[in-house]
Write a protein that binds this DNA or RNA. Structure first.
Length: 588
RNA sequence: GGGCCCGUUGCUUAGCUAGGAUAUAGCGCUGGCCUUCUAAGCCAGAUGCCUGGGGUUCGAAUCCCCACGGGCCCGCCA
């Protein structure tokens, strides 16, 4: 048990004991971390007021008078109806420092739970590069997955690749029927049209190279009846299960995915499994879903050959209650396959989390309804994020109002490189590149997770490239600073001695360090991953204050204890950074 | 027309699920700090009718209702 947990337990026990003596044993109360420094933990007495028929202030006084300090509790004072408890600093310091040193890389982590969680994220259609709007998805998904792993879950991550349907078929037609010359022309035309946005499409990556084909194909389909017929024919053959077409489309999607995967890798996101949508057509499981729904009595209804389920009993309103799961020609729909996909995922994991754009809310709810109709006891847990827009409006690849993630990465890394180049002359070029990469990518990821997913997000370059204050680089810098001090320290004795760490800045720092396990728990269990950057900033900030307040390497008899504290801070910073998917550079 | 989400200072943001003590931080702004260990830093200061209106409560940024403003959804698309 950590020092803080011990303290909390003792506070609860002592209040319970006092209430017991007062003849009120069953009264519920809460503990909270007070906003003032006057206390480490507080118990508000307002709720007890009714049952005890006394004013909160009086209750607080009476309870306080019955509590004998001891153990980790060093004082208890009644203030305005609150019981303010102070914790013994030396126990906090020694307990926390010992925990951190013993656990090291595992500090903040929780014991294995033996529960498998599958996190599906990103899953963008393989028809073009990832733009910063969609970038919220991999960053949120990957961070959540890391937090869950720290929290003791067995985590797997998964990308659902959409290789079925009109979009990819159009792209496939373009890639296979258009020439490089046509694509070059298109790129030139596009570049001219979007000159002021500075958009280049000369990247040697499939996702960027192939958008030109995609755009031409879309245009031709609208204007050229012959092309339209050709594509429609491909679609028909695809749905009929023509293996040749299915394979060709799959190949295109795979090519596209190569580019997307590179981009994801560049921001530190790798996924364990890529599941192809076409699989659920090929293995017949989508068909099975159709048959199973049809057989549920209250469920399947037919209308002009197409089948649907009426969901009005599920709290769905208006015209959304009609959920169609087959076309008139008997073929399945995206959502039907998605049901098959979720049933498949349930075989592989105990809990499923889907990271989805807010446009998927209705679809996700309908999916859950149908799973319920099919008798599933488990449900996927969706996590939604709102869209990112640009100051000039909604992001749209077609209108060219878009910032590609690759461009953002390049820009951020370049800025980080300039920054290092300015301040350091002693680091070899290759090392500088490596640090610039860590810092640039860190700034991007941090900037995305720091905002609650459900909030709307307006992308600005100045925010995304912020390296100060509440930013990734700020935290990374604190880590690098700690590493640098440890390097300079040379020989020292690792000590756990609270009598040598008594400065207010030291106590404050230790208090902050002691919170990591609870932050990890809440980030994972409550899916509040934005707590991670907030906490990381708190640690870095407390460390910087400590750094300014107290000399470390030249501090005589406190030297070893302080260096040990620096090492603890280094461990905590590195662990939070890793949980957020940010690199922890040792120098910057 | 129906439904879901968001609305905190010049800008961005925490707190809201479990209502309580002076509402959290960052950017920007003003003024200080590099002969202590990395100034991507530290210190001090100014800035808020928590969108508006009702209600519940001893007490509301937090819960309920109604407006207003912004986003998203309502295909035999994916």
């Amino acid at each position: 048990m950590s020092a803080i947990e011990q303290f909390t337990t003792e506070v609860i026990d002592s209040v319970n004991k006092a209430l017991n003596e007062m003849g009120a044993s069953d009264i519920a109360f809460q503990t909270e971390v007070p906003p003032t420094d006057a206390a480490d933990l507080a118990v508000p007495c307002f709720q007890m007021s009714k049952a005890l028929r006394k004013a909160p202030a009086m209750i607080a006084e009476e309870i306080a008078s019955r509590i004998q300090v001891g153990g980790t509790i060093v004082s208890v004072t009644p203030v305005n109806g609150y019981l303010n408890f102070k914790m013994d600093d030396s126990m906090l310091v020694e307990g926390t420092v010992r925990d951190i040193l013993n656990s090291d890389g595992k500090y903040g982590a929780w014991p294995k739970k033996g529960i498998r969680v599958n996190v599906e994220h990103t899953s963008t259609n393989p028809t073009g590069p990832i733009h910063v709007g969609r970038a919220r998805n991999p960053v949120i998904g990957d961070t959540l997955a890391r937090a869950l792993a720290m929290c003791g879950y067995d985590v797997s991550t998964e990308y659902y690749v959409n290789d079925v349907g009109k979009q990819v078929v159009i792209l496939t037609w373009g890639v296979n029927n258009l020439t490089e010359e046509q694509a070059d022309e298109e790129r030139e035309r596009w570049a001219k049209e979007h000159e002021k946005e500075g958009q280049v499409e000369d990247r040697d990556k499939t996702d960027h190279k192939w958008v030109a084909f995609y755009r031409i194909a879309n245009r031709m389909m609208e204007n050229d009846p012959a092309v339209k017929e050709e594509i429609s024919d491909m679609l028909r053959r695809f749905e009929a299960g023509d293996q040749e077409i299915i394979d060709t489309v799959r190949k295109t999607a795979e090519g596209m995915l190569d580019g997307l995967r590179q981009t994801l890798g560049n921001i530190g996101v790798t996924l364990d499994t890529y599941t192809w949508e076409s699989r659920f057509i090929a293995d017949g499981s989508a068909r099975d879903v159709v048959e199973r729904i049809k057989q549920c009595d209250k469920a399947g209804q037919e209308e002009n050959g197409a089948w649907f389920v009426d969901l009005k009993d599920y709290g769905i309103h208006g015209k959304n209650t009609k959920f169609t799961f087959t076309r008139a020609d008997g073929t399945t729909l995206y959502t039907t396959r998605d049901i098959a996909y979720h049933l498949d995922k349930f075989k592989r994991a105990d809990r499923l989390i889907d990271v989805l754009g807010e446009d998927q809310k209705l679809g996700s709810k309908q999916l859950c309804c149908v799973l319920d109709i099919l008798g599933s006891e488990r449900m996927p847990e969706p996590m939604f994020y709102s869209f990112v827009s640009l100051p000039e409006g909604k992001m749209s690849t077609r209108r060219g109002v878009v910032v590609y993630l690759d461009d953002l990465i390049d820009e951020a890394v370049a800025r980080a490189y300039d920054e290092i180049k300015q301040r350091r002359t002693d680091i070899p070029e290759e090392k500088m590149r490596e640090i610039a990469n860590a810092v640039g990518v860190g700034a991007i990821r941090y900037n995305i997770v720091r905002v609650q997913p459900e909030k709307q997000f307006v992308f600005t370059w100045s925010d995304a490239l912020n390296f100060d204050g509440n930013s990734g680089p700020f935290v990374q810098y604190a880590h690098a600073r700690a590493c640098s001090m440890l390097k300079k320290a040379g020989e020292y004795q690792q000590v756990v001695d609270a009598s040598k760490l008594t400065d207010a800045a030291e106590i404050k720092l230790v208090k902050v360090l002691s919170k990591l396990p609870e932050v990890i728990r809440s980030a994972a269990e409550d899916r509040r991953i934005h707590l991670l950057p907030a906490y990381a900033h708190e640690v870095a900030s407390a460390f910087n204050q400590f750094y300014a307040a107290v000399p470390v390497l030249t501090s005589g008899e406190s030297r070893d204890a302080r260096i040990t504290l620096v090492d603890c801070t280094r461990i905590v910073l590195r662990n939070v950074l890793n949980t957020m998917g940010l690199a922890a550079p040792e120098e910057m």
